[in-house]
Every structure is written in C-alpha cells, then in structure tokens.
C-alpha cells in the first residue's frame, strides 16, 4: 500500500499566526499518534532582532508544555533525512529563511541557473525524504509574492524560486493552509485531523489538477 503523503503546507503573511497554528497542528497530530515533536529551526541569529525573534519562538514552544526537540538547520535540509522515525511529527519553520540561507550561502552564485537548480533540488529532495520518513512534515512559509516584483534581478530570481518551491510542495502536500489573521483557511485536503480549523464556508477551493505530478520529476 502506498503511503499517503505526510506533507502539510502552511503559509501566511507576517504576524498572521501561521507558526502558532503550525505548532498546534503538530501537537495535535503527535497527540494522536503518540509520536515525538521535532522542530527544524532555519533561523540564524545574525542580528539582535533575529535573536529576539528566535527567543520569542523558543519561549512559545517551551510554554506550550510540549517536548519539542529542536534541530538547528539553517542550510542543508537533506542532512536531516535519516534522523526521524515513522511516528515523528516534524515542523520546519520557515521555508523562506531556509531558502535565504541557501541563496546567500556564497557571494555571487545566486545569479547562476545551475546554482538555483541545485538549491531547489536539494530543498525539494530534503522535503521529500523527511516527509517519507516521518508521520507528518509541516512546512511553514511566507506570502510575499502579491506585490510588484520590479526590475531587481535578485528579488525576481528569489521570488521565482520561492513560488516554484511553493507550487511543488503544495502539489505534493496532503493539506495546505493559508493563515489570515490567525484563522487558517484550508486550501487543499479533505476533513482530516481533529483540531484543524476549516473556517471556510461555501468557497470550493480545491480542484484536483489534471496531472498528478509530485515533487519527483523536478530534479531529474
């Protein structure tokens, strides 16, 4: 029997409550399966503001009374592909930070298409391998593509990579949510977990795409 995708995608604007929702969702799944909670932290404390943000998120997680195991992984997601077991619930927060770190990992390489492809593939493969190994992989990301992209090459390339990553992940995800003002709107997936919050009434969002392409295929 083919294992159902364990991937859940959550996105939203700044301060939309996406992390909080992701953590609650993770806890609720872990609760059902008696699995362990893992947190992949992509943020690096490069300045005091980031440091404060990281501390705030850490406090939130420890206040929750749940036992999160934290993995600091600012880059090289694939390195975590063999550390989880089948009951584990893994939360990656957030994809934009991970992409930033990879993108700027070497001075000027971001302009090169081979480097862009390499980053995309390594993230996609990392996501795929982790998703396969655990009970649920929840990925948190940001809504940043609803404004003019402009003529800045760096912003254009970054935006295109992030958009393509999101498309790939949503395609292969079992569930996808857009969080607005603390309210998660389910964009994909059927009634699933207890504790998920489908606030949507009447709008039919999810239409199955014609092709059943998944993450595979991109990196071949």
């Amino acid at each position: 029997m083919a294992k159902q995708s364990s991937l859940i995608f959550i996105s939203g604007g700044v301060r939309s409550g996406k992390s909080r929702f992701a953590e609650r969702l993770a806890a609720s799944i872990a609760n059902q399966t008696a699995g362990n909670l893992h947190y992949i932290a992509a943020g690096q404390s490069s300045d005091p503001e980031m440091e404060r943000r990281i501390v705030r998120h850490q406090k939130d997680r420890s206040k929750s009374g749940l036992n999160w195991k934290t993995w600091e992984q600012p880059r090289g997601l694939k390195r975590l592909s063999s550390v989880f077991t089948s009951n584990d619930v893994v939360l990656l927060d957030c994809l934009t930070t991970l992409l930033n770190n990879e993108f700027f990992s070497s001075e000027d390489l971001w302009k090169e298409s081979f480097f862009q492809e390499q980053i995309m593939c390594s993230i996609i493969e990392g996501v795929e391998q982790i998703a396969k190994s655990c009970r649920a992989l929840i990925i948190v990301s940001n809504e940043v593509l609803n404004e003019r992209i402009g003529n800045n090459e760096l912003v254009f390339i970054y935006g295109r990579m992030l958009g393509r990553l999101h498309q790939h992940i949503v395609t292969s995800a079992k569930e996808a949510y857009l969080v607005e003002a603390g309210i998660p709107v389910r964009m994909k997936g059927v009634d699933g977990h207890e504790g998920s919050h489908d606030s949507r009434n009447g709008i039919g969002c999810w239409e199955k795409p014609d092709s059943d392409s998944d993450l595979q295929g991109f990196c071949q």
Partner: peptide, 9 residues
C-alpha cells in the same frame, strides 16, 4: 490561483 490551486471567486 494560489500555488496551483484555484479558488473560484
């Protein structure tokens, strides 16, 4: 369209 998912408005 949100990452490939359509929402008819």
């Amino acid at each position: 369209i949100w990452y490939g998912i359509s929402q008819k408005i």
